[in-house]
Design a protein around this nucleic acid. Structure first.
Length: 417
DNA sequence: TCTGGGGTCCTAGGACCC
DNA sequence: TCTGGGGTCCTAGGACCC
């Protein structure tokens, strides 16, 4: 059996941990640049606030109804996420961190009542981190996901749902729309509806071979998984990333080339930090920049750049992306709204076999990057001048909460009265 | 004025090889 | 009369996830 543990309204709940005055109140969290609504507390959902709606459209209404609004604070969410995962590690030696707010746990060998076990996980996370979670327990990942959905929807479950005997669940599955199944998105839902497959039960009853022929192998696997046949195992050590991207929308539109160069330098630098963390080198990079989606004549340019040698030296990558911006991407008169850098062809830092003819990165690069990474973990960050000192185009996060758990000057204070 | 930022996997079709 | 079959690699596009 597997458990899926996921945090309820994760970002919104994080904001409430150090603000007890906001518990039980409507709270929402916005995406980067305060663009869209990406998380809503239970109370905010109850007010009918839609997910992924642009903030500016609802701002007025939100103010009127007294909703508490936050910019995203990834420092805080990342740190609380780590604490949740550490707590869960105490419940199973086999844990797959699936996303910032979810983990799969193997419950193989767990004796006793699984529902009780689920409740003890819930209690532990609540007590150690202060966050509410739901627990779904079932024989396959897809069913565990479904169980966690039921755990949150049905009051009777009290946030823990165990699916063991599948035949006892047909009545419930018949009431759940098929798009709630993990792996079934909007497009597939439409196609399935044409075949009169509307509910989880409808999908579960299909022949996997037929579904493989008419859809694809993943849909076939989903059907198998719904029937208790495990097609996906636990990935305890996620494979290294095959591509690394860093892209952002700007806080303000950019029209001059120097500013655009600064921004891609910064994204290149961020991507290279991730690259070195997974001990890889990059051979090919991609740079792009574009105007907003919602202008009359949208502009977008990208360039794929092979590097002279595989590297993880930020300087090499910055040089290449700046050149690209200058010579290919930038155009006068365009109001750029976003840009990004992708490291698209990677290879391990230590290849199995070196060969005589391929140039290798100088050792001094490695030494310099190691020192930079170490300084940036512990001290005031150092960075390249080309990233700009006080860029005007930086992300807007007007409503960000303090980094309560990661910055000394943001530590919460307790006063005794 | 104002609409996120990451990722993965699969499939089909073309080019090319023997 | 009669014109193979199997394979790899690459790319673009589609679909999904959080």
């Amino acid at each position: 059996m597997l458990a899926l543990v996921d945090c309820n309204s994760f970002f919104a709940s994080c904001e409430q941990v150090f603000r007890p005055d906001l518990r039980g109140k409507p709270v929402i969290v916005l995406s980067n640049n305060d663009g869209c609504i990406v998380a809503r507390s239970k109370e905010a959902k109850a007010l009918g606030i839609p997910d992924l709606e642009p903030y500016f459209k609802l701002k007025h209404q939100l103010e009127k109804s007294g909703v508490h609004v936050f910019s995203s604070n990834y420092e805080l969410y990342g740190d609380l996420s780590n604490r949740v995962m550490q707590t869960l590690e105490g419940f199973s030696p086999h844990l797959e961190i699936y996303s910032i707010d979810e983990a799969f746990l193997s419950l193989a060998g767990i004796k006793g009542d699984l529902r009780d076990y689920g409740h003890s996980m819930r209690k532990a996370v609540q007590q150690c981190v202060g966050l509410p979670v739901g627990v779904g327990i079932a024989p396959t990942k897809t069913l565990a996901k479904l169980a966690s959905y039921i755990a949150k929807k049905s009051a009777r479950c009290e946030f823990v749902c165990v699916i063991e005997r599948l035949d006892q669940w047909h009545r419930v599955f018949a009431k759940i729309p098929v798009q709630q199944v993990w792996g079934i998105g909007g497009r597939l839902t439409k196609r399935l509806a044409d075949q009169r497959i509307f509910s989880v039960l409808d999908l579960m009853k299909q022949d996997p071979r037929y579904m493989k022929r008419h859809y694809n192998v993943n849909v076939a696997r989903t059907v198998e998984e719904l029937n208790g046949v495990a097609c996906y195992g636990l990935d305890q050590q996620p494979p290294p990333k095959q591509q690394i991207f860093s892209t952002r929308s700007f806080g303000q539109h950019i029209t001059d080339c120097a500013a655009l160069e600064q921004s891609v330098s910064q994204y290149a630098s961020r991507a290279c930090v991730k690259l070195r963390k997974q001990q890889h080198l990059v051979k090919t990079i991609m740079v792009f920049a574009a105007s907003g989606h919602f202008v009359d004549r949208p502009y977008s340019r990208s360039q794929v750049i092979p590097l002279p040698m595989a590297t993880n030296d930020t300087r090499q990558v910055i040089t290449a992306v700046r050149k690209s911006v200058n010579e290919v991407i930038y155009r006068e008169g365009v109001k750029f709204a976003r840009a990004g850098v992708g490291l698209i062809e990677l290879q391990p830092e230590r290849p199995e076999q070196l060969d005589v003819f391929t140039p290798v990165q100088p050792l001094r690069s490695k030494a310099l990057m190691t020192v930079m990474d170490e300084i940036n973990q512990r001290h005031t960050p150092v960075y390249f001048a080309s990233q700009g000192v006080t860029p005007q185009w930086s992300m807007q996060r007007m409503l960000k909460s303090p980094s309560y758990t990661t910055q000394w000057h943001d530590l919460p204070c307790v006063s005794m009265k």
